[in-house]
């Protein structure tokens, strides 16, 4: 019998979706391991958050009333103490940017192995984790031969639990060593807006590293203009300064939900997919038949964008540059 402890996440007063997802992952795992599911709610309006995550499958919610926003020094200490106090042997932390900022430190402090970015969990006497490698081209099964383990769970892989529960809520008095708090969050900034808000777009032509050179961008710009779509892109083009940040689709860019999304020369990394999988229809053009983008595309064309895009422009009566 193994108990599971899962940690929720919030930002700027809002509980984040991963909190509901980690409840699903946690309750499935707790059931398989024959144990209870404990939830940790740390910082912010803990009572309101605890109320919101009092969901089906949760046995006990532990609130730690320390700080307003995420601070990795407080989280690391609080989670370490919760793990000990609850007697849990399995710890789940969402694999978010903040999860990445403290899960390995908790693992180090507890001296418990950590497996990151899980997409599936199994328990059969021991923990079995499914995770990807090589930009989602390969899946692996990872066994953890240890009684205790920490797993970070990929966002949007588990269906969020919405059904209400009847967990008991307990305030946990964490003993935070303030002298160990060496980082101070001083605020938040929003990446600048721009000429277009892709989250409102109905039709997006999106381009990735397959475009190779900045000069080639005019080709997809011509396509977007000819078909009347907004131009989006994957991250590397924005990193290179070829396109402004407001064009970036993905985890750290825009989440878009157009009727049609054409992904051209985009491999389909998880952080890109996070921003566009809600599109009604996804069309992918890529030279690599094993590109992960084809796993989520409705329509696929295995071809060279430098041939397909000009032909498509012509198809709509435009002129390729």
């Amino acid at each position: 019998m193994s108990d599971v402890l899962a940690i929720t996440e919030h930002r700027q007063g809002e509980l984040r979706d991963v909190s509901h997802e980690v409840v699903t992952a946690g309750s499935e795992l707790a059931e398989a391991a024959g144990g209870d599911l404990h939830l940790g709610v740390i910082g912010g309006d803990v009572d309101a958050f605890a109320d919101a995550v009092n969901l089906e499958g949760v046995d006990t919610i532990h609130t730690v009333d320390e700080g307003e926003e995420f601070n990795h020094d407080i989280y690391t200490q609080a989670v370490e103490q919760l793990f000990d106090a609850t007697g849990a042997s399995l710890l789940l932390i969402p694999h978010t940017v903040n999860g990445m900022d403290y899960a390995p430190a908790v693992a180090g402090k507890l001296d418990v192995p950590v497996v990151t970015d899980a997409i599936e969990l199994g328990y059969n006497g021991g923990l079995e984790v499914t995770r990807e490698m090589y930009g989602s081209k390969v899946e692996t099964t990872v066994d953890v031969d240890s009684d205790e383990a920490i797993v970070t769970t990929r966002p949007a892989e588990w269906t969020p639990t919405e059904a209400d529960g009847d967990a008991s809520v307990e305030a946990f008095d964490a003993d935070i060593d303030e002298s160990a708090v060496g980082s101070t969050v001083t605020g938040f900034e929003e990446a600048a807006g721009g000429d277009v808000d892709l989250s409102e777009s109905e039709f997006i032509v999106s381009i990735g590293r397959g475009i190779e050179e900045e000069e080639n961008l005019e080709l997809v710009e011509a396509l977007a203009e000819t078909v009347g779509a907004d131009l989006g892109s994957s991250r590397p083009l924005v990193d290179n300064g070829w396109l402004p940040k407001n064009r970036q689709v993905g985890q750290s860019g825009k989440v878009v939900t157009p009727d049609v999304y054409i992904a051209i020369g985009i491999s389909g990394a998880v952080q890109h997919v996070a921003g566009m999988k809600g599109a009604d229809t996804i069309i992918a053009v890529n030279t690599d038949p094993s590109a992960p983008i084809f796993d989520i595309a409705d329509y696929g064309a295995v071809g060279d964008l430098f041939d397909v895009v000009p032909a498509l422009i012509e198809e709509f009566g435009g002129e390729a540059p």
């Binding site: 930002r11 700027q12 995420f70 978010t96 940017v97 903040n98 900022d101 060496g182 980082s183 101070t184 969050v185 001083t186 605020g187 938040f188 900034e189 929003e190 990446a191 940040k245 985890q251 750290s252 860019g253 825009k254 989440v255």
Partner: peptide, 13 residues
């Protein structure tokens, strides 16, 4: 620190 959704956390370390 670049968080999700174009939000950045400003931190002193």
């Amino acid at each position: 620190r670049e968080l999700e959704g174009g939000v950045e956390e400003v931190t002193e370390v």
